[in-house]
Design a protein around this nucleic acid. Structure first.
Lengths: 124, 124, 124, 124
DNA sequence: GTGGTCTAGACCACA
DNA sequence: GTGGTCTAGACCACA
């Protein structure tokens, strides 16, 4: 499982981990009841304090995205709140665009970015 | 000068002030060499400690957006990096959309947001 | 880390700290990604209020010379603008000499100073 | 009399005025007993508060560079401390070079600047 | 432990 | 009046 961390970012490490796992679930890469790597394994792979990993998973569990079985491990929940995850990502898009608009961005500037990022995708 | 603060946001107060003034410059509302309200005036208007206001301006000055003359006041820089401000705002839009896409967002979801935010604006 | 402060100078304390750390980076004593002493440690070592230290680092960070990771510490940036630092120092030399020339200084006066300051250094 | 002010500089306006008049004396442009423009005239020419001009002249007088005759005006002193003026300018050169050296400047970097600034002057 | 934010207030030089 | 510096200290999230 590839997770990319930006240590310079203002979003805390545990939240970056959380977001990316949520993303893998939301986009269908991780499937229901699939087992995740152990806390220890992630901790050493990412060279991150285990408490940080724990925190990420405790939040994922609170959101119903994962569940843990003592002595077994952590699994993807069968009924993930995909929409909730997507919605919050889209909220951030909304905020970012509104900000850019306040800075003088035009509709065309934003559309150009959208087209570039989705280029090659089938119409959907 | 209208500045809106969200005290619950993760972006610090000084940065909200900074962003909004940058926005007023970037969008042309504040013009080169125009004088801004004094630190004390802003401090009392916004009911924010003067040091927080100072911090916002020290960053604006570091970015070349304003300059201050001790004993006189704070002014909009003659050579504002307007494009730089807009560019960094568009960069954040790009990042936010890329994240949303990773969460499974479709082109249409994003376009809908763009249209809503720019609706009513003339084509530009 | 030896930092020398002149409390009577017109250049503020935070700027003296800033300059000296920039100097250590520019001259190669501090290397990329090296960790600096903590804010609290510097504060007590130099007997300077922690906020003054913070200010020095917030400017160093704005200039891209250091970066900070909350909860971890402050580090030398991997891509320091070493040349930019040196260039701005040489700019000040240029200004000072031009001023002295306007006051009637001769070429020989300035050369004498240069020789004295670099005496003992190998030709470079 | 041409005086150039840098409102962004940390050196106060009154000191910039002071320095430049001292420079004109030191370099021989202004001669002993020559009359200077009136406070009012300078104030309006430079668009500077008259108190700032007064302060510049009170310091020039304290240094023995000018003297004032009530009801007549301000004049260049007959025995100006030229060396003192030059010496302090050279002191600043020394400081600037020492700083640049700490930033890693080499002897050759500084010499190049000196040669450029004095190029075309006869050897002196 | 670490850095980050914010408040409060003293004091300063300058215009 | 203006902005600039510095101290002091509370409180926070994160590792």
């Amino acid at each position: 499982m590839r997770i990319f961390l930006d240590y310079h970012s203002r979003t805390p490490i545990y939240e970056q981990i959380e977001e990316q796992i949520a993303g893998l679930v939301s986009s269908g890469v991780l499937k229901a009841n699939e087992q995740l790597p152990s806390l220890r394994q992630l901790s050493s792979e990412l060279a991150i304090n285990i408490n940080t990993i724990k925190r990420a998973f405790s939040e994922l569990e609170a959101k119903g995205i994962t569940y843990s079985v003592a002595g077994k491990g952590i699994f993807i929940s069968g009924n993930p709140q995909r929409n909730a995850i997507l919605d919050s990502a889209l909220d951030e898009v909304r905020t970012a665009i509104a900000k850019a608009k306040a800075m003088g961005a035009k509709r065309a500037d934003v559309i150009k970015i959208v087209e570039k990022l989705f280029e090659g995708d089938e119409v959907s």
